[in-house]
Amino acid sequence: MKLYTEPELSFEQQNKIGVLLVNLGTPDAPTAEAMKPFLKRFLSDARVVELPKMLWYPILYGVVLPLRPKVSAANYARVWLKEGSPIKFFTEKQTAGVRERLPSSLFIEYAMTYSEPSIAQAIAKLKAAGVGRLLVVPLFPQYASSSSGGALDKVFKELQQQRNQMSVRTVSRFYNHEGYINALADQIHHYREQHGMGDKLMFSFHGIPLKQHQAGDSYPNECRATAKLVAEKLGLSEQDYVVSFQSRFGRGKWIEPSTQTLFNQLPRQGVKKLDVVCPGFVSDCVETMEEIAISGREEFYAAGGEVYHYIPCLNANADWLDALVDVIKENLLGWLKYDLEDLK
């Protein structure tokens, strides 16, 4: 292991506080050429695909990477913004919003686990600015080994190579944080006030393989806890909402119920008007904008549904940014001289 050469800064200059927000990542463009290296980085991570390399790599390099980039690029092309990738655009806006709400003495950056700006690039930038105390906040409310775990692995890998290591704190989850729950409930309430209320509200979270949950990943439990807390804020009964899991990949068994399966079943069960929200994503992205807002609508209507509303992610919602800042402040106590009363 090779250690980095440190910036030429004095001890006092290396004691600043930084905050690193981390999201998943994105291809640089909605093309197969740009999609392939992004998928390669993502699907090569043992946190994402928990198979021995000798079994998985022949499939990855022989089947997935030759075929999948074209399909995925077409999905990205359906939702690509004039500003570029949706997830990158909204993460940048969130980072700017956090900067505006925190003291200028703090250094706020964002990074992507599987694209640029990379975690290594962001940490190097913070280090060069004199940051010696770092708070890392993966932007995944519910902890999953394949999302928050993968992001934090890369942070710890960078620490291993630092000669003069930073002090680091991490926020592995905030699925039940009051500010996040309130912002989410208000987002849903205001949307339904403007567009009408469906027969049922679907909370669709990204899925994970069942084996990961059975091995100890608490993700689906945290997803259901988030949905329950939001439903209580909205005054919904258990019959008024459903929790489901989307984005299956491969042939293995994933946690149930499947979002896509419910799109086909619910109309036959009398649910003709459906509202869908994706609380596991704080930024709209291809999984929400294409898979749910576009393809999900098509599947629901094809199955006999009549009214379908996709409720956007929190994105740059002011209440959400206030909540994210509260998460940051609460985890900086002792580094920043805040009293608990100041956080209310």
Rank of each mutant, 00 (worst) to 15 (best):
L236D: 04
F245Y: 15
L234E: 02
G235H: 04
K233N: 12
V243W: 13
K228P: 13
S247Y: 11
S237I: 06
G252M: 14
G250K: 11
K233R: 15
D240I: 00
R251G: 11
R248L: 08
K253M: 12
Q246K: 11
Y241H: 00
K253D: 08
R251W: 07
S247H: 13
I255D: 13
Y241I: 00
F245G: 08
E238W: 08
F249N: 09
Q239R: 15
T226H: 10
E238H: 14
Q246T: 00
K253C: 06
S237H: 12
G252N: 07
Y241Q: 02
Q246S: 03
Y241D: 01
S247N: 04
K228W: 15
S237L: 14
R248F: 02
K253W: 00
L234W: 07
E232R: 12
K228S: 14
S244M: 11
S244R: 12
S247C: 10
L229W: 06
V242L: 15
F245S: 12
W254M: 06
W254R: 12
Q246N: 02
G250Q: 07
Q246F: 12
E238V: 08
G250I: 07
V230L: 03
S237N: 11
R251Y: 09
A231F: 05
L229Y: 09
E238C: 03
E238M: 12
G235I: 00
G235A: 05
V243H: 15
V242I: 15
A227N: 06
F249T: 04
K228Q: 14
V230K: 06
R251I: 05
D240R: 02
G235T: 01
A227W: 01
K233M: 08
S247K: 02
S244A: 11
Q239P: 03
S237A: 13
F245V: 06
V243M: 06
R251A: 04
V242C: 10
E232P: 08
R248D: 08
G250L: 04
W254C: 01
G250Y: 10
Y241P: 00
S244T: 15
A227I: 06
Q246C: 03
G250C: 13
E232S: 09
G252R: 06
T226S: 10
L236C: 10
A227R: 07
V242W: 09
L229T: 00
K253E: 14
S237R: 15
L236M: 07
I255M: 08
E238N: 09
V242D: 08
R251P: 02
E238T: 10
S247L: 08
T226G: 03
T226Y: 08
V243T: 07
A227Y: 13
K253S: 05
E238I: 05
S237V: 09
S244F: 14
G252F: 02
S237T: 10
